[in-house]
C-alpha cells in the first residue's frame, strides 16, 4: 500500500513538474504578453494542483492535507487576480497584439 502511495506521489509530482516546464516554455516562446500570461497561469495552476494532489498522499493526517489544499487555493487566487491586473494593464497600453 505504501509503495502504491509513493508511486502515485512520484507520478503526480512529475506531471506537475512537466506542467511548470510547459508553462515556462510558453512564457519564453509565445509571441505577446497576453498569450504568455495564459501559458503561465494555466500551466502553473494545473502544475501546482497536481503537485499538491501528489503530496496529499504523503500528508500527515487530514489537517496537513487541508493545509496543502489551502496553499493551492491561495496560489490560484493570487495568480488569477495578478494575471487579470497585468492583462488589463497590457490592454490599456495597447500592447495586446504583437
Amino acid at each position: 500500500m505504501s509503495l502504491l502511495r509513493d508511486l502515485f506521489t512520484v507520478l503526480m509530482v512529475s506531471a506537475g513538474g512537466f506542467c511548470f516546464l510547459a508553462g515556462t516554455a510558453g512564457l519564453l516562446r509565445f509571441p505577446d504578453a497576453l498569450t504568455r500570461l495564459h501559458a503561465l497561469t494555466k500551466a502553473d495552476n494545473l502544475g501546482l494542483g497536481l503537485i499538491v494532489l501528489g503530496l496529499i498522499a504523503q500528508a500527515p493526517g487530514p489537517l496537513g492535507a487541508l493545509k496543502l489544499v489551502a496553499v493551492w487555493l491561495l496560489a490560484q487566487l493570487a495568480g488569477a487576480t495578478a494575471t487579470q491586473v497585468l492583462a488589463r494593464a497590457v490592454r490599456a497600453e495597447g500592447r495586446d497584439s504583437p
Binding site: 487566487l77 493570487a78 488569477a80 487576480t81 487579470q84 491586473v85 488589463r88
Partner: peptide, 8 residues
C-alpha cells in the same frame, strides 16, 4: 481600481 484587485 481594477475589479480583480477589489476581489483579491
Amino acid at each position: 481600481q481594477d475589479d480583480a484587485i477589489v476581489l483579491l
